[in-house]
Design a protein around this nucleic acid. Structure first.
Lengths: 260, 260
DNA sequence: CGTAAAATTGACTGACTTCAAATTCGGTGG
DNA sequence: CCACCGAATTTGAAGTCAGTCAATTTTACG
């Protein structure tokens, strides 16, 4: 949790090095990205749908989520982001933001000019690849959510998202998969699972009654992990947490010999 | 439709140049990618969930779709791809395929070794950026689909997808937005909208009865575009078709002066 | 302590699913 | 050209999961 305040971009470096290894020069360039550190209150907007974003946003601490609305105001929550995620590499590289990003809890973020991101990707293609990979993993999670909300029943949807948050938070050392802080309201949980808040409430109660979880207003304890995994049809491959790191840009070491 | 057979990768070049302009060297490098051209029958698999993919797949002609299954066999269709799409830039760069890709119609594809893609991105960062952008647009469409299946009613979901295919096919000169070939079965349409095939059938009938579309087994004519747009809550921003092309890699022209 | 947001509960409704059977279509072989 | 077959579509009837509406209780927090 206690990041070196002198290196606010360290969480981004750590996250991207899940996908590619960086040499000293690449690490320095990344940490030297121009940025503005901002403290956000819960529910503060990072980007609004329709904006022409000028910055990307790194989440240093706290949680954030992406959302999209129908014309009638119904909401879907598309993703929940955690420390180290460059929230909205998805959004801000394209011209117009097609969805909004909002802080879920109070959060510390770094705004990075989008040209600086593009420039970094052009000067250090290895970092560009890592950022690309990172957005691909986001997409993979989005696909699993799509499956979740279209083809699983209510109690499975809830069970699945409870499993996912546990594994993700544990991978960041922000909790245990069987016990973690859970700051979403039931209404937000409903928008993340395509259900109605009332039904989410009843489903949580049912998961408690059947002994799978204990739920208090802002925390979750899983009391029967293996049954919860079955109930949620949870298979964690889609999180790509075991992606083997590619050693430092081997392609750059032998680019001349192009045997074909 | 009639692409120069000497340049089978031309559709990919055309598509990527929607996002970035390439100079002659970049264009040549892209067209020279190693590849194997394959003709696929309808329903043939390109990648299966769980595979360790070694190739990316460019769709030269025909349609393809991505899908994912629950443990009990229920299916969701995540995306439909058209000519020029590098189906599964999404999938094949990561270690394990988290979903399957299948031909929707008979199709011609080019398999490109994934190292060749990574190598191209490292040698020509401008092309790397274009491919990244391309996957971001895919993600944007995926987000709209998520909104569609979670927060719109059945008839809206169908109306929305009918609008989307019209606009996308028209942008590729493969049809008119108000009249196009539509090779999906009602069962596939159900899996793309999170509905049951029986309900899809009834909904299509209702859209016909109310005069919005005419539907025959394998083609759609929109008889009232503006009402269909309203019914489907369709706003085409998310397709990012008006993304202004960035002129040839300006960042590369002045990388020295880094005024901050 | 007071207040607003969030959670909870009950009664009722309905959009969509399920099951099952009939019909149509497209291609194939005689 | 026509009969045939499996897949896709269509239709009907009945059931249910989740939504809706509305009121009450709990909680966080100043």
């Amino acid at each position: 949790m206690a990041e070196d305040p002198a290196e606010p971009l360290a969480p981004m470096l750590r996250k991207l090095q899940l996908w590619r290894r960086f040499d000293a020069q690449e690490q320095a360039a990344l940490l030297a990205l121009p940025r503005e550190i901002v403290d956000l209150k819960a529910a503060a907007y990072v980007v609004r749908e329709g904006d022409l974003p000028t910055h990307s946003c790194l989440l240093i601490s706290g949680l954030a989520f992406r959302q999209k609305l129908t014309r009638t105001g119904a909401r879907t929550i598309l993703a929940v982001h955690m420390s180290g995620d460059v929230v909205d590499l998805q959004n801000s590289l394209l011209e117009v933001a097609d969805h909004s990003v909002q802080a879920l809890t109070k959060a510390q973020v770094a705004f990075i000019p989008k040209e600086a991101i593009v420039d970094l990707a052009l000067r250090f293609p290895n970092i560009g690849l890592a950022m690309w990979y990172d957005t691909l993993v986001d997409s993979s999670i989005a696909r699993e959510w799509m499956l979740n909300v279209t083809r699983r029943e209510g109690h499975s949807r809830i069970a699945h998202i409870v499993c996912e948050f546990g594994v993700r938070l544990e991978s960041l050392s922000l909790g245990l998969r069987t016990s973690y802080e859970f700051p979403m309201t039931q209404e937000q949980l409903a928008d993340a699972t395509g259900l109605h808040p009332v039904h989410v409430n009843r489903t949580l109660k049912e998961l408690e009654r059947t002994g799978l979880i204990t739920y208090t207003r802002r925390s979750i304890t899983v009391t029967n992990w293996s049954e919860l995994v079955v109930a949620g049809d949870f298979r964690e491959t889609y999180l790509h947490l075991n992606q083997p790191k590619t050693s430092p840009a081997p392609e750059l070491q032998a680019p001349v010999a192009d045997a074909e």
